[in-house]
């Protein structure tokens, strides 16, 4: 799915003064592309990702997936769209602590009341080296394992877009490399558009395209 962002703006109010997190951003992302979004802390890169994911509503502008403008959608339709087409990986994993790893992985499928293809999920878990830990609660998994569960969850619905917000932020160097390698493999294998927000330059350098953002404004777009 191609993603077209046009004139996107987002301002946060509620504090002492309003903060314009994203200012008139426009960009195009082709289907299957692998993009890193970098910038200093507080530059607006996570906000941009959240807007593209439909987790927040922009104040102005449009975000189109192929020809579908998600900024015009109602909340329920947006939720449905996100569930079917977008996989999200968060920095702090955001796993449900009361659910086992397996249940966390199949959560998107359960939310759609879809029949669980156990073989596919088992293969996915095996691929992510989680097969022996599926029946454990997140509290019994290491950081790397938890992130892999989050990635598996994001892929469970076979999304066309995978959005990752600082996926290696809570991991050590070795685990970080392993996770990034995994993301690349998945993106290549499944032809999934990959957008990774990171402040780590060494990780960003591995991507074909790097978008920098500074004070809410898109800076460089390095191919």
């Amino acid at each position: 799915m191609d993603i077209t962002v046009n004139g996107l703006s987002k301002t946060y109010t509620g504090g002492a003064a309003p903060v314009m997190a994203i200012k008139n951003c426009s960009l195009k992302i082709k289907s299957g592309e692998q993009i890193a979004v970098t910038g200093a802390s507080g530059s607006g890169k996570s906000t941009l990702l959240h807007l593209i994911a439909g987790l927040e509503r922009a104040d102005s502008g449009s975000i189109k997936y192929d020809n579908t403008d998600i900024t015009e959608m109602s909340q329920n339709k947006l939720d449905d769209f996100r569930l079917k087409n977008i996989g999200i990986v968060f920095q702090s994993f955001n796993l449900l602590p009361e659910f086992t790893a397996y249940e966390n992985i199949i959560l998107p499928l359960m939310l759609q009341s879809k029949k669980i293809d156990k073989t596919r999920i088992d293969k996915l878990a095996e691929y992510l080296d989680l097969d022996s830990r599926c029946e454990h609660l997140p509290s019994k998994l290491s950081g790397g394992q938890q992130q892999r569960v989050a990635i598996a969850r994001a892929l469970a619905n076979e999304p066309t877009v995978l959005l990752c917000d600082e996926p290696t932020g809570n991991l050590d160097k070795k685990s970080s490399k392993a996770v990034i390698d995994l993301l690349f493999n998945i993106s290549n294998k499944l032809n999934v558009t990959l957008i990774v927000v990171t402040h780590d330059e060494s990780i960003a350098k591995r991507f074909d395209r790097i978008i920098t953002i500074s004070d809410g404004v898109l800076g460089g777009d390095i191919q």
Binding site: E98, T100, Y102, E103, M110, S132
Partner: peptide
């Protein structure tokens, strides 16, 4: 900090239906 992570003992059997899953998960909690 966190509980033992390198245990091989499983926590419990996973469910595949959301209602049953939630019932098990939050019921225990």
């Amino acid at each position: 900090v966190r509980e033992e992570i390198y245990t091989t003992k499983k926590s419990r059997k996973s469910r595949t239906e959301l209602k049953k899953c939630c019932h098990n998960a939050y019921g225990r909690k």
